[in-house]
């Protein structure tokens, strides 16, 4: 049990995908302007990561044993098409959920966090369950980073910041501070 907990906490805070692996930075800076979009983006990410983890495990176990050089190509294609499929199913069965996640799903399919998860999972030889826990941890971590970032940006937008630093430069420096704070979690476990 503690093994799964370790994977989860490690992916969520200690090795946070955004703040310490720099994965998924485009949405991190792109949609963190408002709190509610950030939260939805985070949940959409969590959702796609779960599907990805399952697909990657399936491909690794049943297909890629015979053709490892096709890994990258098959990952991208299978993940993109399964997300599309799930998107269609959600649209039919649960319009409310679709409205909440809808526009973000196609955007994040080719996001580096998604492919990164599939690759890390492969490199570390995770089993299906370990992979899923890893995906949830990563998704929670991404959501956490996005929501914190959005909260800070909303506050900062109301402050009197010099014009020169407004925009991208300021966002990077805020992200740097957050990343510094998340480094503090490194002492959480001793392993």
């Amino acid at each position: 049990m503690s093994h799964f907990l370790w994977i989860f906490v490690s992916a969520a805070v200690i090795n946070n995908f955004t703040l310490s692996y720099f994965l998924g930075l485009c949405p991190f800076f792109g949609v963190s302007g408002r709190l509610d979009t950030a939260l939805r983006m985070g949940f959409a990410n969590l959702f796609v990561l779960t599907i990805t983890s399952f697909c990657a495990w399936f491909l690794n176990v049943f297909v890629l044993v015979h053709a490892p050089y096709l890994r990258l190509i098959s990952f991208i294609f299978v993940i993109a098409s399964s997300v599309q499929l799930v998107e269609m199913i959600i649209k039919k069965t649960s319009p409310a959920l679709f409205r909440a996640l809808g526009i973000f799903l196609p955007l994040i399919t080719t996001n580096c966090a998604i492919l990164g998860l599939a690759l890390f999972q492969t490199n570390r030889d995770y089993s299906l369950m370990e992979g899923l826990v890893f995906a949830w941890g990563a998704g929670v971590g991404l959501t956490l980073a996005l929501v914190i970032m959005a909260g800070i940006r909303v506050e900062v937008s109301m402050q009197d910041v010099p014009k020169l630093i407004r925009g991208a430069a300021l966002n990077f420096i805020i992200a740097g501070m957050l990343s510094l704070a998340f480094m503090g979690f490194a002492g959480l476990f001793s392993q």
Binding site: L19, F22, L164, I165, A169, L170, G176, S179, L180
Partner: peptide, 25 residues
């Protein structure tokens, strides 16, 4: 040491963007 760790990446990028903005301005 912090510069070779993740936060250093963000700080360096922010700093370089700031310099770019300053020069353009």
């Amino acid at each position: 040491v912090v510069m070779v760790m993740p936060p250093g990446g963000f700080f360096t990028m922010g700093l370089l963007l700031l310099i770019m903005a300053f020069v353009t301005e």
